[in-house]
Amino acid sequence: MCGRFAITLPNDAMAQLFAARPANDLPDVPNRNVRPTDQIHTVISDATDRRLAPMRWGFVPVWYKALNDGPLLINARAETIAEKPAFSEACRARRCLIPISGFYEWTTGADGKKQPWYIAAQDDAPLALAGIWQDWTRGEASVRSCAIVTTAANEALKHIHHRMPVIVDAADWPLWLGEAGKGAATLMRPATDGLLKFEARAPE
Rank of each mutant, 00 (worst) to 15 (best):
H162Q: 07
E83F: 06
I132M: 03
H161L: 10
R201N: 10
M164Q: 15
E105W: 01
E155W: 08
D69T: 00
G102N: 15
N75K: 03
K84Q: 14
L175D: 10
W106E: 05
R94W: 10
G183E: 08
A120G: 08
R21T: 12
T137E: 13
A93H: 09
G131S: 05
D69W: 00
A82Q: 12
T80F: 08
G139T: 14
A13W: 09
R32M: 09
W57D: 10
P190T: 02
I81V: 15
P203Q: 11
I44L: 05
G194Q: 08
A6D: 10
L17G: 06
L129A: 11
I98Q: 02
H159T: 14
P126T: 10
A130D: 09
T137G: 05
A202R: 13
S101C: 04
T192R: 13
E89T: 11
A202G: 12
L157P: 05
P30Q: 04
N24R: 13
A156I: 10
R51C: 04
A110Q: 14
E83R: 13
E79T: 04
A78W: 01
A23F: 09
G70M: 00
A66H: 05
D169I: 07
K84F: 13
C146L: 15
V60Y: 02
V43W: 04
K182D: 15
D25N: 15
M14W: 03
P116H: 02
G181K: 14
L195W: 06
A76V: 01
P190W: 03
I81Y: 02
I81G: 06
G102F: 15
Q122F: 07
W117M: 14
F198N: 12
T150D: 08
I74N: 12
S88D: 02
V143P: 00
A120E: 14
A53S: 10
K114F: 12
R32E: 13
